[in-house]
Design a protein around this nucleic acid. Structure first.
Length: 654
RNA sequence: UGGGGAUUAGUGUAACGGUAGCACAACUGACUCUGGAUCAGUUAGCCCAGGUUCGAAUCCUGGAUCCCCAGCCA
């Protein structure tokens, strides 16, 4: 418990210092940006946000909050061909849910305060004309392929475009024609005149504008001339007065260009506006950090989109996805995501964080706040032979041992219960403390029971366990002080609520989904049996590492009746199992005596692999479902994360 | 073979010339009406080689390895 000297007030609260905070401190020391801190999160609305974006949001918003600065949410929408309103909406919802508060945010209007990069198109266009007039940009007639060939290679310089020295007036005229729409897509671009021999390829006369005749989600058909990211992004930051333009490592090579564009505009401008071009524009500082990678999942938007489009998952918010919406649906609390982002830190080292840390943060938070309930996933009938046939007692159960203020509830107890199949063994392995003939255990909040035997079906499966109870142990304590090694959870068969439970596991079977070495081994024909079949996937395909057991649906599972009215999104701990939350699919009413209609939520018709794409139950699998609760609500629970399971580890080693 | 980054226990992250620390994971044990939680403990690290220095993860030199860049994507 050594406490390092904390010179900075931030140390304790916000975790370790990182290189970005050091840079900001330095700027504040030297007075650059007048001690102002203004950050932003600038997603392109071409997909849903994932946990990697959460890292960026927490960093950017956290910085602004810590330093008393401002934070903008801006859609970087410069490519009308890939961007959609659905993505805009999801991004706004996710950022808000994570807890980031941007300038102008309001609760009554989701998009209030959200900034669109496309709203700066007029200003950027004016600056482009300015660069043409300064002799720093030209209209190029080369095709995409010709531009590419002329760029040279990593080790050889590029060739100047034949249009490089076009007269300014001609450039101006052509650029205007590009804007008005008379120039077809792909035939002309506006390029910056920098240096075709520059060792940084980004400075070999990069394209500033291309022609795209497409309808933009925000500006409609106003433009057919669209700015490239490199040209647009720095100005978006500049116009908003962003001080620290924080982005990921792959943009490090672009920083010189980002700086060049702003310097080019500022040439001939002065602080007091006395120059020929007026006032200087703001020049933010770009800082790059390493993006987040997580084990057992993929993080690129391209791959996530591929999973969604191919139907291998049930949409962007599939609880197995590393998307913010998927994690929300899975039951991950925003507090856990924020804590995770705080703990992983920020650096320039490309790294892959163990998903166990994320799961730890989820458990840590849920342990403190989630009410406990009893639920049996794989039922085994337990009959208490010496209990009255029609007896029912309501046992008091603590809602949350971590939080006394959470109070208690009452759970019905009767002669016939369900316990977990795993909690009985006819012949117990070593260190097995649960129910087996002759052994006494405690039923949580109820009684001590002693196993007297079991009943098997024709196939030899245990279908029923019998026991006797000790009435003196009511509530779970023995007056004579005798101990039991184990406490089991249970539900009263007559009172239990039938629900659907979806058990999720990692999306991939390997920490690194790109590890396709198994395929190579198979291809080499070394005789080793493949670890698992990969139906439908080519050798070497990362999708071949998808976990076929990433979703298991249990229907019915049996819960204590107190959760009958649980709201969608409500989170619980099912004791001894894990944390679960009510899925949004929980909305239908059960028809009297019938089975729940199937909600094909997120069902896609695309190519599917069994198990991977199974998004829901096909029908009520058990005729008992709904049997006693006509008109009751269908309840679907997602397993957010399991509890740590020491016994599973012991059993594995046996 | 060009340019730009990076390298500290299994993983992630501190150290700013002065005892290599923290978290997760793993493993022990204690405790427990959740084999949960909690508590205590253990294992385990400076990419390599030189140099400067009383002293180097830190400064210098050389090397190795990994990542990014040749979209009219971002």
């Amino acid at each position: 418990m050594t406490t390092p000297k904390t010179d900075s007030p931030r140390d304790a609260k916000t975790g370790p210092r990182d290189f970005i905070r050091e840079i900001v401190d330095e700027h504040n020391r030297t007075g650059r940006f007048d001690r102002r801190v203004h950050t932003r999160f600038p997603p392109e609305p071409n997909g849903y946000l994932h946990i990697g974006h959460a890292k960026s949001i927490c960093l950017n918003y956290g910085l602004a909050a810590e330093y008393g600065g401002k934070f903008n949410l801006r859609m970087d929408d410069t490519n009308p061909e890939k961007e959609e309103q659905e993505y805009v909406d999801s991004i706004i919802e996710d950022v808000r849910w994570l807890g980031a508060r941007w300038v102008g945010i309001r609760d009554d209007e989701p998009s209030a305060g959200v900034i669109w990069g496309s709203n700066y198109f007029d200003q950027m266009h004016a600056w482009a004309i300015e660069l043409i007039k300064k002799g720093k940009a030209y209209v190029c007639d080369l095709s995409a392929e010709q531009v590419s060939r002329g760029r040279g290679t990593l080790t050889t310089p590029g060739q100047a475009s034949p249009y490089r020295d076009r007269p300014i007036e001609e450039n101006l005229d052509l650029f205007e024609r590009m804007r008005t729409g008379e120039v077809p897509d792909g035939t002309k671009t506006l390029r910056a005149k920098i240096d075709m021999a520059h060792p940084n390829l980004n400075l070999r006369d990069p394209v500033m504008y291309r022609i795209v005749h497409a309808t933009h989600h925000n500006t409609g058909d106003k433009w057919c001339l669209y700015p490239m990211y490199d040209w647009a992004h720095g100005f978006e930051d500049s116009l908003e007065g962003i001080t620290h333009s924080i982005c990921t490592l792959e943009f490090e090579n672009h920083r010189p260009l980002y700086d060049w564009f702003i310097d080019a505009v500022n040439e001939g401008r002065t602080d007091d506006g006395s120059g020929p071009w007026g006032n200087k524009i703001h020049h933010p500082q770009q800082i790059e950090f390493a993006r987040l990678n997580l084990t057992y999942t993929v993080m690129s938007k391209r791959r996530l989109l591929e999973l969604v489009k191919s139907g291998l998952v049930c949409g962007w918010d599939d609880p197995r996805m590393p998307t913010i919406s998927g994690m929300r649906r899975r039951g991950y609390p925003p507090e856990a995501l924020r804590e995770f982002c705080r703990r992983i830190g920020v650096s320039k080292v490309e790294s892959t964080v163990d998903i166990a840390l994320l799961e730890h943060c989820v458990r840590e938070h849920l342990n403190k706040v989630a009410p406990r309930v009893l639920g049996v996933l794989r039922p085994l009938k337990l009959v208490i032979d010496n209990y009255p046939d029609d007896g029912v007692e309501w046992m008091e159960a603590i809602n949350n041992p971590e939080d006394v203020s959470a109070g208690s509830r009452y759970v019905p107890f009767s002669k016939v219960l369900y316990i977990e199949q795993d909690d009985f063994r006819e012949t117990p392995p070593p260190k097995y403390w649960r129910l087996y003939p002759g052994n006494e255990v405690r039923l949580r909040y109820a009684y001590f029971v002693k196993c007297t035997g079991c009943v098997k079906d024709a196939a030899g499966n245990v279908v029923e366990v019998h026991c006797t109870y000790d009435p003196a142990t009511r509530g779970g304590d023995s007056p004579d002080g005798r101990k039991v090694k184990s406490t089991l959870h249970w539900v009263s068969a007559a009172h239990a609520l039938a629900v659907e439970v979806r058990l999720y596991d990692h999306l991939f079977t390997k920490p690194d989904p790109d590890d396709v070495s198994d395929d190579a081994l198979r291809a080499a024909g070394d005789g080793a049996a493949p670890a698992e079949p990969k139906p439908g996937f080519a050798a070497g395909d990362w999708k071949g590492n998808l976990n076929p057991d990433s979703l298991e649906v249990i229907n019915p599972a049996w819960l204590e009746p107190s959760v009958a009215d649980a709201a969608s999104g409500a989170r619980y701990q099912f004791e001894r199992h894990g944390y679960f939350c009510v899925d949004k699919d929980s909305h239908e009413r059960l028809a009297a005596g019938g089975s729940p209609a199937n909600v094909a939520a997120g069902l896609r018709t695309g190519r599917r692999t069994p198990a991977i794409s199974r998004c829901h139950t096909d029908v009520a699998a058990d005729p008992r479902v709904g049997r006693s609760q006509p008109g009751a609500r269908r309840l679907v629970f997602n397993r957010t994360v399991t509890l740590k399971d020491t016994w599973a580890k012991i059993e594995k080693k046996l």
